[in-house]
Design a protein around this nucleic acid. Sequence first.
DNA 1: CTGTTAGCGCGTTCAG
DNA 2: CTGAACGCGCTAACAG
Lengths: 345, 345
Amino acid sequence: MRRKSVPTIRDVAREANVSTATVSHVFNNTRWVSPSTRQAVLDAAARLNYRPSAIARSLTTRRTHAIGVVVADVLNPFFSSIIRGVEDGLWRQGHSLIVCSTDEQPDKEAYYLRLLLERRVDGILIATTGADQPIFDEIQYHHIPMVFIDRRPSEPYGPMIETDNVQAGYLATRYLLQLGHRRIAILARRPSLSTVVSRVQGYKQALAEFQLANEAAMVVTVNPRQEAAFQATCRLLQDDDAPTALIATNHIMTLGVLTALKTAKIRCPEDVSIVAFDDLPWLELLAPPLTAIRHPIAELCSIAVEMLLKAVDESSGEGQESATAAFPTVMLPPILIERGSCRPL
Amino acid sequence: MRRKSVPTIRDVAREANVSTATVSHVFNNTRWVSPSTRQAVLDAAARLNYRPSAIARSLTTRRTHAIGVVVADVLNPFFSSIIRGVEDGLWRQGHSLIVCSTDEQPDKEAYYLRLLLERRVDGILIATTGADQPIFDEIQYHHIPMVFIDRRPSEPYGPMIETDNVQAGYLATRYLLQLGHRRIAILARRPSLSTVVSRVQGYKQALAEFQLANEAAMVVTVNPRQEAAFQATCRLLQDDDAPTALIATNHIMTLGVLTALKTAKIRCPEDVSIVAFDDLPWLELLAPPLTAIRHPIAELCSIAVEMLLKAVDESSGEGQESATAAFPTVMLPPILIERGSCRPL
DNA sequence: CTGTTAGCGCGTTCAG
DNA sequence: CTGAACGCGCTAACAG
């Protein structure tokens, strides 16, 4: 039984009475072809419903025009934004995005990376879990450039684009301190994430600046699920010396915190002040509107795309190995959006 | 200048003193290989950092294990959810997702579809703009199965999985009617979208059931941007005979409506009742919590994935053409989540 | 149990 | 300006 088949460049060449090379050239505009033969080729192609195969092309060009984008969860608005930003920067160039949600699991991350490697994507953009990944070495060996966004890898395997998270933690905390708060809790995820470490560092830095001993720090580590943040908040706020202000270090935490307030009928900002991380349109619609730290996502993306494309270009250039100068790190300042969820004490 | 190169199956074969076929077979577990040679192959591969090339493999197997997912906007939570749902249904099988945001533009949709066709994806899952797309014919000609989700194409080119939108419109409207509302406006996008047509149809159906003449219908057509919804709402509510209830037919509309209420200091539900489409976690956190129509997204996705995989399987089977029995349409019921944004009149 | 060989569909020389 | 021929990395079919 014959397999279904699809018209190839050879079919078109035969149909148009030219060579396959000619067909290739008219489709790629890679050299002059007389108008008449060009037309003949196009006609033949149209008649046969011919479409060049990117697969076959990739095999010889060693370029797939595919970019792997690895994030924790496509559904998290922060990462959706990144994906969208990256897509906007790439689609005009004919690049496709292969998206992967790791769910913060190093194993899943490794699995996806292996897949991307075997697919021979032109480049990888990743918000890594931060775990040691032997596969990073392989990817490097295969000359597939990686660009890291938002979260740092354990070792430098490529340029890094991130929000200045120390500054972000500092900004949020200082803001609350200036309002007179002294018992400020910060809800954070596992400290193996570079973002968490930095934000907590900024938090402590602000505390220190206000002469608050390290013991004053209330760093609450919770699992990255809304339920966990919910529980933690409840526990925290019914404590005797409950904090007067809360910093939720990401979208999921914020959701958990707000749910807890609502459930326990704790008023904001009367009973507790809140600073959220990850600004979203609906924060504005809450009562009170939520003060938040905004990442400069658009800028992060455009820089990341730029660096990735540059790296992709170069990776096809050098004969042997590039100087592999130390990879650059770009840090963009976060923005504190003041709204109504914090009150002076 | 020699191009950078990467170990191939031949290198491994040479290194292990076996044939390429054997290497292939140990990597694919496609026939028995003696433990000793298998080990030799694996060792050689490890030594060389060998990774099979999915490109080369695809060329001969005519399978890419890639699925194109085409939606209006990856950033819209409704579509993010779909992407996530589809990813969950596919990643274990080694399939990759290529995501595409059309921004509701038929041209961009066509562009992406051409790209996916040339990439020879195994299948396409699409929430189409609904425009006539000649490329659909080509895709069909190339035996790439398509599955439509959420929105109908102009002609049937594949199975269709959707929320019962007539029911959705009906449900929302009847709910408000039962509360005593008689002046109910519905904010909808361009009526070329199948979802919009159906929802409005359900809306009118409910109206009719309550003996309301067709003139009582207040269908407000707005561009699918928050700003447009905002403007429309403002205009609508400062009218003399303003509606007492509003139905926002998607996430963007909801954002616009809520912003308008906030800006104009119109209270909900005292001054106006609201039913939103697309349920999201934060709706619960608003004051008042928003009553909403929820799509059964997880179910939509799992059915869509199932149908797609079946179609992909079959597309490699038949010799010539399948009976192409009429494509099935699956309609899942929407759910009305009652919260506090509607009040009896 | 393993090896040989012929494509897969295209880009790219390099003669004509 | 055109076309023949080779190679890309791998799998499938057949031999042994």
